[in-house]
């Protein structure tokens, strides 16, 4: 991969019950993710996706440049800047910004429509 190359776009739509399955898998049962009534009572528009599930989609999109090899992802840094919602498509895009010594650094964004839920994400992936 060369500087300026795009990574394959990842598109995934979390279904209504995905936050429940992720809560079980991760152990994060914060009610803002799994209880719509609770979420709206504390001022959110709805129950919201786990930020770390969205980060896992960013990780998956970046590992895809090394055929999904779990050894290839060396570092991932993200900033959570928006709320993600179930039943809306999440699109992860990325561009190579550095390339050296068999490693690439990829700038990544995850968005639902115009809502950038993860910005300034930077992944270091081994492509040797």
């Amino acid at each position: 991969m060369n500087v300026g190359d795009s990574i394959p776009e990842l598109r995934t739509t979390p279904d209504k019950y995905l936050p429940h399955r992720y809560a079980g898998a991760s152990g994060d049962f914060n009610p803002i993710h799994i209880d719509k009534e609770f979420a709206t009572a504390v001022g959110l528009p709805s129950n919201i996706l786990h930020g770390l599930w969205m980060m896992a989609q960013v990780a998956r999109a970046n590992a895809a440049v090394a055929d999904g090899d779990p050894r290839a992802l060396k570092r991932l840094s993200v900033q959570f800047r928006g709320m993600g919602f179930p039943e809306q498509e999440l699109v992860v895009t990325g561009t190579v910004k550095e390339e050296a010594d068999g490693k690439v650094v990829i700038d990544t964004v995850a968005a639902q429509g115009d809502n950038q839920v993860i910005r300034n994400a930077e992944a270091e992936v081994s492509v040797a």
Partner: peptide, 26 residues
């Protein structure tokens, strides 16, 4: 089973996250 459950929840498709033979082969 925890690794399989997690891999399913995040959509990690590589069989090395589910299947012992595939993981060992890799």
């Amino acid at each position: 089973e925890k690794v399989r459950e997690y891999a399913n929840a995040v959509g990690a498709e590589n069989t090395v996250h589910r299947d012992r033979e595939a993981a060992e082969a890799a």
